[in-house]
Nucleic acid binder design. Structure first.
Lengths: 338, 338
DNA sequence: CTGAAAGCGCTTACAG
DNA sequence: CTGAAAGCGCTTACAG
């Protein structure tokens, strides 16, 4: 079944292609009568203009792309959901690509999106990304860019993030208020800003409450998964490091740590409290349920798309776009592990 | 920064646009010398042909679309990963849309994809889909279609699925071999073929091992989540229905049931064994860890894309495409809950 | 208010 | 082996 074209409609109604095109786009210089005829007919035959042909003239592809570091990841899936849902409302389609936390792959994926002429790119910078030239590249083309989750001070674009430092502070403060004094931190890798910020929030809470910072209580998770949490906890036990609480950079390492504690019959939260970060589905389903910081992914995704749309409108009106850092609120979720 | 065009290259090398185009596509009627010049230059300036313009001639968009019922869903995320990874290898880009298990939305999403001129659509039919007219619609256009996860006998297309009946049989057989005789089934909704098949596998295992089927031990999960599993288990306790095992249609209801059992201090697996289905990440992380059926999503996704590519090749060679049902192997994963 | 014409950036049948 | 020309399906400046 061949797709209908403007030409087909023009022929059927015995008017010109030009008039059909203008009528469908509501040009003011088409008579109401003609407009009505055209629109009714187009509706009847379910005509949709070919987006590829339209692009060639308008340079709008009505397409955006997302690059995320992980695909099978609760938080990023929530973000996807937010972006896609909002995109649909505005008749946008969304390409998904994954960087696998690799700098090289991230570069390639961005290039792919640029070559597909997307109108905008949504990016969460990979953990291993140490250089932002490829991101500058997006900005140099006329493609819009919105960064989410991972913030970077260095790029000329808007970002939708949370206040990681504040959120981490809240988590650690919560542990302190529960009477904990020897709080370990399972932190993320060294490069990404959010793992740095969560670490800083941890330190600040210790400082503010007069607890001494002990670098031997900080463990790095290079991959943010349960195994790393488990292993770090095992190390703590093996080396008899004294702790009474853990603040983990994310829920999975927290869950890993809890499983190690459970296997060793260490009581949670009485002997060791554990708090995670992100509020993955799993955190409410395990026993004991995991206290955590809720990081509203879907909301962040929606916001990111809205920012993109606004900036696009501004550009179309030739107004100057001001880049902003949008911060989404997080909440402390108290459960049984603290 | 304007994008380069064939024209720019032609001008730079002082040859015609035609020759540039042919050289880049390795036409045999271009001299090796010219080819080399063109290719080297194109490489140097990082030229990529505009895919929208190319589409207008070739009617290949190098774009596919996926419609899944759930976005934040471990199994579907694995499938996404499989399809996207394979698509990338073949220079395809992937649109993601979500039907939210709704028939109406599924219809709309498919129409959207068709209007974006995707070369192929990958679909897991929504639970609420009761009519397949919109799917026939894809087939009527020249768009390729591959169905995955949810199988339907009625559509003229290939599908990549598991043998749900056999997999369910294996799960229930496992419970029986552990000495369980009063096995409840938390089944999925009535419509989708896979929830029917898992139910049939359950019944067949009971039959084969001489256990009587008792319809009062079958509970329907309309939404396949933990809450439904929890609630059904609560009902069983409230109504003092005697069971010694549960086979759940998926991991989440199994986890919900386990949480209800734990709260009531009922020993797993001694008093009640629980087995799930799918092998979500969570099943290995909870305590006790959940036995389940591994359903290799990423593999299914890869296979689905390969099927699409093969059928596309066939079509290009004007050969007849034969639709097949590809079955991916599942494995029983024994853990602590059985 | 309507429409002929140019052009977006490609591909390819055809002529030389 | 090379290139002029037509055409994919739109949009829009321009003429009438």
């Amino acid at each position: 079944m061949k797709n209908l074209t403007l030409k087909d409609i023009a022929k059927a109604l015995d008017i010109s292609v030009t008039t059909v095109s203008k009528a469908l786009q509501n040009y003011p210089d088409v008579s109401p009568k003609t407009k009505k005829r055209v629109k009714e007919y187009a509706e009847k035959v379910n005509f949709k203009p070919n987006s590829f042909a339209a692009y060639l003239r308008t340079h709008e592809s009505k397409t955006v792309g997302i690059v995320i570091p992980r695909l099978n990841h609760y938080f990023f899936s929530s973000i996807l959901r937010g972006i896609i849902t909002e995109a649909e409302k505005h008749e946008y389609m969304t390409f998904i690509l994954c960087s696998d936390e690799s700098y090289e792959l991230e570069k390639i994926q961005i290039e792919r999106l640029i070559n597909k002429n997307v109108d905008g790119i949504f990016l969460s910078i990979a953990d291993k990304t140490h250089d932002l030239g490829h991101i500058q590249n997006i900005i140099d083309k006329e493609t819009s860019l919105v960064i989410f989750d991972k913030y970077s001070k260095l790029t000329a674009c808007s970002s939708v993030v949370i206040d990681d430092q504040k959120a981490a502070y809240t988590a650690v403060e919560h542990l302190i208020k529960k009477g904990k004094t020897k709080i370990a931190h399972f932190r993320g890798p060294l490069l990404p800003q959010n793992s740095i910020d969560r670490f800083l929030g941890y330190r600040k809470a210790l400082d503010d409450y007069g607890l001494e910072y002990d670098k031997d209580l900080v463990f790095i998770c290079d991959d943010i998964n349960d195994t790393e949490g488990y292993n770090h906890m095992q190390t703590i036990l093996d080396e008899k490091i004294e702790i009474d609480a853990i603040f983990a950079v994310a829920d999975l390492p927290a869950v890993g740590a809890m499983n190690c504690l459970l296997e060793n019959n260490i009581k949670i939260p009485e002997e060791v409290s554990v708090i995670g970060f992100s509020n993955w589905l799993i955190s409410s389903l395990i026993t004991p349920s995991l206290s955590t910081i809720d990081q509203p992914g879907e909301l962040m995704g929606r916001k990111a798309f809205q920012v993109f749309m606004n900036e696009r409108e501004m550009k179309k009106k030739k107004k100057k776009v001001e880049f902003k850092k949008y911060e989404i609120e997080t909440t402390l979720i108290e459960r049984d592990s603290t």
